[in-house]
Amino acid sequence: MFFSSLCVTSDLLLKVRSEMKSSPVRVVDTFLIGRFILLAVMSLVFLGCLFLFLIYHLMEPVYAKPLHSS
């Protein structure tokens, strides 16, 4: 089992390396700025939701019940 996995792994590594040498292709991320804008918007929405959760759920006032005197 070990030797068969070793053979398959080495075969795949050699194929990938030979393909990379024959055709140098540059990968360019064209959506980089859009991804950062999306991350910033999602972070702001998360912080806003966290702030509203703290105000309306965790800091909700608890009123004392009136004492009944007899």
Rank of each mutant, 00 (worst) to 15 (best):
M1C: 13
M1N: 06
M1D: 14
F2A: 06
F3L: 02
F3A: 06
S4F: 01
S4K: 07
S5G: 03
S5C: 01
S5I: 08
S5N: 07
L6C: 07
C7L: 06
V8L: 13
V8H: 08
T9N: 10
T9A: 14
D11F: 10
D11A: 08
L12A: 11
L13W: 11
L14W: 09
L14T: 15
L14P: 00
K15M: 09
V16T: 07
V16Y: 01
V16M: 06
E19D: 05
E19R: 11
K21G: 04
S22I: 04
S22V: 05
S23R: 07
S23W: 14
P24K: 09
P24D: 00
P24V: 00
V25S: 11
R26D: 03
D29Y: 11
D29A: 07
T30M: 15
L32H: 01
L32S: 08
I33A: 01
R35M: 06
F36D: 12
F36V: 14
I37W: 13
I37G: 05
M42P: 00
M42R: 10
S43K: 10
S43A: 09
S43Y: 03
S43R: 14
L44T: 05
V45D: 01
F46P: 01
F46G: 12
F46Y: 14
G48C: 13
G48Q: 05
C49F: 08
F51M: 04
L52A: 11
L52N: 00
Y56C: 06
H57G: 07
H57L: 12
L58M: 07
L58Y: 10
L58V: 12
M59D: 07
E60F: 13
E60Q: 07
E60R: 11
P61W: 07
P61Y: 07
V62N: 05
Y63K: 15
Y63P: 02
Y63I: 02
Y63E: 08
A64M: 06
K65E: 15
P66D: 06
P66F: 04
H68L: 12
H68R: 14
S70F: 05
